[in-house]
């Protein structure tokens, strides 16, 4: 009954064939099922990414449209400056609209990812364009206040001179007026500086040096706007104090 070597080899071969025949169909089925699942996952991923891209574009378009209306209502900005910033905003809208159309037509996940990221990286709507426009608008409002308060300083000076002629002590009033004028001058300088820093900025288009200088310009202009705002508030406090003192003089 002892099996010879040929019989043993044949038996082993048959056993391995049997095992392979048992495992292979299950394995093949599993691979097919996995491939289908992966394809479905990829499609789901594409659809989600397109929806996300569309949402990001829609947010940006809404904010850009709102700020254009604001820029058009500014009173101190020159027509040329207004045109510069408006063209920048409209270019951003056109670019976002184009990228949205591309995203909606994308069928390849890698291309789609790149296009969705370009909403952020190529357009810089939130990083640059909107802060730039809001800084321009804030600068305009501050300069409008400075103009109005400059007219008031002339009136206050006239009243102080009258009071001095009438023999009143105007030392404190004059000091307040001088402080008011200094604050207004500084507000004018700071708001003009903020405007000059940002008015001509354009998206970096992937240039890191431009990105860094843009970010720095926005940061500095933001500080300038804050300082100018503090100045006009301080100047207004001076003005109210002067008016109150003038009223108290009989």
């Amino acid at each position: 009954m002892k099996l010879n070597i040929r019989q043993k080899v044949t038996t082993s071969f048959l056993i391995s064939l049997l095992i392979t025949a048992t495992v292979s169909p299950a394995f093949a089925q599993s691979v097919t099922s996995t491939t289908l699942k992966n394809a479905a996952n990829q499609q789901a991923r594409i659809e989600k990414l397109i929806a996300r891209g569309d949402t990001e574009v829609a947010k940006r378009l809404a904010d850009l449209t709102a700020v254009i209306a604001k820029i058009n209502a500014l009173v101190k900005l020159s027509d040329s400056q207004k045109n510069t910033i408006t063209v920048s905003l409209q270019n951003n809208i056109a670019s976002l609209t184009a990228v949205k159309a591309k995203i909606d037509a994308d069928t390849d996940l890698v291309t789609l990812r790149s296009d969705v990221m370009s909403i952020l990286t190529a357009n810089r709507t939130y990083l640059l364009i909107l802060p730039q426009a809001h800084i321009v608008a804030a600068s305009d409002r501050i300069q409008d206040v400075v103009d109005a308060m400059s007219v008031l300083t002339t009136k206050l000076q006239a009243r102080i001179t009258q009071a001095q002629a009438a023999g009143k002590d105007i030392t404190a009033l004059q000091a307040n007026l001088t402080d008011m004028q200094t604050k207004l001058s500084d507000a004018q300088t700071q708001s003009q500086s903020a405007l000059n820093l940002v008015i001509s900025l354009v998206p970096d288009a992937g240039d890191k040096a431009v990105l860094t200088s843009n970010n720095q310009a926005i940061k500095t202009a933001h500080s300038d706007i804050k300082a100018a705002n503090a100045d006009i508030k301080a100047a207004f406090t001076d003005a109210r104090s002067i008016v109150a003192s003038l009223k108290a003089m009989k």
């Binding site: 990414l49 996300r52 891209g53 990001e56 947010k59 990812r113 969705v116 990221m117 909403i119 952020l120 990286t121 357009n123 810089r124 709507t125 939130y126 990083l127 640059l128 909107l130 802060p131 426009a133 809001h134 800084i135 608008a137 804030a138 305009d140 409002r141 501050i142 409008d144 206040v145 926005i218 933001h222 706007i225 804050k226 705002n229 006009i232 508030k233």
Partner: peptide
């Protein structure tokens, strides 16, 4: 009005990070 405009600058600065996230 100027303070409101300045506040909008603050808000827009806070919103800058919307352009620095990674969308996959």
């Amino acid at each position: 009005a100027a303070a409101s405009a300045s506040g909008q600058v603050d808000t827009s600065i806070q919103n800058q990070s919307a352009d620095t996230v990674t969308i996959q």
